[in-house]
Deep mutational scan, measured.
Amino acid sequence: LVRYRTISKIPQITLNFVDLKGDPFLASPTSDREIIAPKIKERTHNVTEKVTQVLSLGADVLPEYKLQAPRIHRWTILHYSPFKAVWDWLILLLVIYTAVFTPYSAAFLLKETEEGPPATECGYACQPLAVVDLIVDIMFIVDILINFRTTYVNANEEVVSHPGRIAVHYFKGWFLIDMVAAIPFDLLIFGSGSEELIGLLKTARLLRLVRVARKLDRYSEYGAAVLFLLMCTFALIAHWLACIWYAIGNMEQPHMDSRIGWLHNLGDQIGKPYNSSGLGGPSIKDKYVTALYFTFSSLTSVGFGNVSPNTNSEKIFSICVMLIGSLMYASIFGNVSAIIQRLYSGTARYHTQMLRVREFIRFHQIPNPLRQRLEEYFQHAWSYTNGIDMNAVLKGFPECLQADICLHLNRSLLQHCKPFRGATKGCLRALAMKFKTTHAPPGDTLVHAGDLLTALYFISRGSIEILRGDVVVAILGKNDIFGEPLNLYARPGKSNGDVRALTYCDLHKIHR
């Protein structure tokens, strides 16, 4: 019993810090008490220290592992850092350059016999395009090294910054494609005289377009951006097909006994025919423009016929181009109408809503002055909100995010209106959640004399007048207030005048 009563005193000691020596009952000389009392004092002292730490809000209350900052290894790049964003855009520009100039170089340097010394005699450094290609190869190699040090988000939505895990993730992902696209074939085969082989191998750079397509997928929600990307894709495919079309004609031209190829026909049409040795002929500019003209006309199913396939190889390629053109029509131009419709969806919704308003007016036989006010209010409210119901949009977000959005939407009023000066951010967040926005066209009466005042109004834009009878008592403008002081009276009061809008007004109100 003594032991039980001794232990039962522990909660009292913990909360009230009572010393055991003052209790005459606990001072009985028993061996059990002498053993338990020192333990009680020690526990009391420890609990006292913990309570003191909690009340003082000291940093040592938290466990040590929670006080440590997340460790980022040296030379690790955050995937959302500004440097990584700028670097990704730079790589994107280099990939676009590669997609345009690599097929052009591979096709127009394929057994090209233009006048001038061969590239091997001039030297590697004197070729501007080769120098640019070398810079692109170096940048792609540097990009691989950067990807080995860039964080990523795993399946659990955690940012991984450990170098080993980053390397394994990159090896399992895009490393092989990036490595093949970054191989400097110019340096590996330079001086061997195989410019045709170098041009063909350099087309491996186009593998990076797969990554670019995935990154550009984030802009699919913007109709104008999608339309622009589709047109660029169409032009890029036409450019690639033009390079292939020229390569076919250029390879067949020296081996044909009869002059029936499209390059021969082009030379005869523009007065620059090929001679018996295969030299001469149109310039590279004429060849490229004509090839691009043929691919565009074939892809769009126009086909004027002034550039036509004559050999079997050219006919087979033309059939493939027609098939590609039909697929592009289905996948690209078939979506253009939907994209344009999405661009004008706001206008369509406006006309639909206006039609419903006019049908309501016609069905209920609203008189002319009231009908005009109804239409003007709808037009003004639509121009202010673009038909978007803010309350319906915010309803799907958590309250903390709703408060931040409301604070942002009402920031101008909260910053410049005098009653809100000096208020804490928590108070402003709470008030912003209570605001209701209303609009009024010129001549609209917001409050009639004798109406119950259940709200306090803040003028965000425009001006109003307060009338008693036919006498203008006051004219209020931006950041002015009218209405009933909230919670100042037990019952809502009545208006002693009319409140009429002089201009288009936007008002925020808080109800009782």
Rank of each mutant, 00 (worst) to 15 (best):
F190K: 14
E114I: 09
F140L: 01
V95C: 03
W75Q: 01
V210R: 14
T233N: 01
S345G: 05
I189Q: 11
L431G: 02
T300W: 01
Y288E: 01
L134T: 03
G396F: 03
I189R: 14
S161L: 05
P441W: 09
T233W: 09
G267A: 14
S331F: 11
Q341L: 09
M256Y: 04
D143R: 01
A130H: 05
L78H: 04
I405L: 03
N310T: 15
V159M: 01
T295S: 14
Q415K: 11
L94M: 14
V210S: 08
I366P: 01
P82G: 14
A432I: 08
P117Q: 11
D143G: 01
N275Y: 01
A338N: 03
V180M: 13
K172I: 04
K111E: 11
R421E: 12
R429W: 01
K418H: 09
T352N: 09
G271S: 01
R211E: 06
D404W: 01
G193C: 05
N154Q: 08
V168N: 09
T445D: 03
D88T: 01
L216P: 01
W174R: 04
F185R: 04
K215W: 04
N306R: 01
W245I: 01
M231F: 11
Q372Y: 13
Y170S: 01
H79S: 01
T347W: 14
R259A: 15
Y97Q: 01
V210W: 15
I339A: 03
G191D: 04
I340M: 07
I340E: 01
T311P: 01
E112Q: 05
Q341S: 10
A224Q: 09
W174F: 10
D257Y: 01
N306G: 01
S258P: 05
A125S: 14
L209H: 01
R421N: 07
L176W: 11
K66Y: 15
K395D: 07
N312K: 01
K215Y: 03
F101C: 07
S331P: 03
L229I: 11
L394G: 01
F234L: 13
F83E: 09
P282M: 03
T150G: 01
S277Q: 09
S412F: 08
S308Q: 01
R165C: 11
P367S: 04
A392V: 08
